[in-house]
Design a protein around this nucleic acid. Structure first.
Lengths: 194, 194
DNA sequence: CGGATATCTTATCGCTGTCAAGATTTAATT
DNA sequence: AATTAAATCTTGACAGCGATAAGATATCCG
């Protein structure tokens, strides 16, 4: 096909719907997310998404899954630019955690602060478990004798920071220049390790 | 009036609607909260809430405001049962923070993890600012030279802990007996202070 | 080529939040 | 005490939502 005005079949509607859903999420937030609006954004009828995602929960679950992939990628990116020692790697993971929350606040909120994504979905469960595993292993690498409380401490500090920043509280940190904020995040995550 | 079956005027509908709203919030969560359902719970027409709260946002804002009052009360309760020194007081504040989140997960999520409550509302703004002020002053009392980063560290660790526990992640801590969990929370909050 | 299948639309349902208009009760004023 | 004003609640309507069944159109595969 060359470039027909409106082919009956979209070609890759699933991907287009996910893009539209992310735009909708960013524009309206998790609370006011509308599936019909997503369909409208993609230039398709309101019933079209059902064939690819089932219901609105399916769309949000797929979006959250994609979100976790990028979440992990943001952590990897920071870790690649960090020193090799375990502590620097764990702090880099925390910086990536916060990076993602600041860059995608609505997506972050969908992933961590709502019941709208179905975590019993195998793909979402797998990728969220991987995120936890990476953090836990990062803690173990720094302190081999570390236990549950140590993992909880690092996760809590990092997640709390990310959540408060994504919500727009903690303006004292959110308004900082990146380098300065990075130092503060590193300091806070570092403290949680004792 | 003795006990007429259905008086046209309720008497204290505002309070009854808030109770119904809290029940609805607990039952369905922030995501599926329905104003009509709240009215049904209170035995009143769907348009009745408008006269007391304006729209659904007004109900949720009032509910969040009441939530912050109880949030502060939970912290006060812990602080009354704690030692007098500044550090014990701050850790008690953190324990109250977590207590509230575990006892009222849906309300906690409304207050901290959603845009549905209007924080420009004077009453809600005032009570949420008081909560922040108490935490910041608690940090200052422990370390008079403390700065923004110290406040952010304590808030992040405490809030992250509460948020993850309310969301059902961190089952490792959530499944503990209260005394054991308290020790872990105290340890984690304590770490954020240095 | 032709039937099976995947993809998308149209039309409809019950539910939601909001609003205007009317009914009923309480409060204020004289 | 009588009348008026104000507050409270109901009824009825509207548009938008998610979901689903039935039909239209395109692709796949023998």
């Amino acid at each position: 096909m060359t470039e027909a005005a409106k082919p009956y079949h979209h070609g890759d509607l699933r991907a287009a719907l996910l893009d539209a859903a992310e735009a909708e999420l960013g524009a309206r937030g998790v609370e006011a997310f509308s599936l019909r609006q997503v369909a409208r954004r993609a230039g398709v009828s309101s019933a079209a998404p059902a064939h690819h995602f089932g219901d609105v929960g399916g769309v949000l679950t797929a979006l959250a899954t994609e979100g976790f992939r990028r979440f992990l990628a943001a952590q990897t990116l920071r870790q690649q630019g960090a020193g090799e020692d375990a502590r620097a790697q764990l702090i880099a993971l925390g910086l990536g955690y916060v990076d993602f929350a600041l860059a995608n606040p609505a997506l972050f909120r969908l992933m961590f602060g709502s019941n709208r994504a179905a975590y019993h979905d195998p793909a979402l469960y797998a990728v969220s478990e991987e995120a936890f595993r990476r953090l836990a292993e990062g803690v173990q690498a720094v302190r081999p004798e570390a236990g549950m409380v140590d993992v909880a401490a690092v996760w809590s500090a990092t997640h709390g920071l990310a959540d408060l920043l994504a919500a727009g509280r903690l303006q004292m940190l959110g308004g900082m220049a990146r380098a300065e904020r990075d130092r503060a995040v590193a300091e806070i995550v570092g403290r949680s390790l004792r």
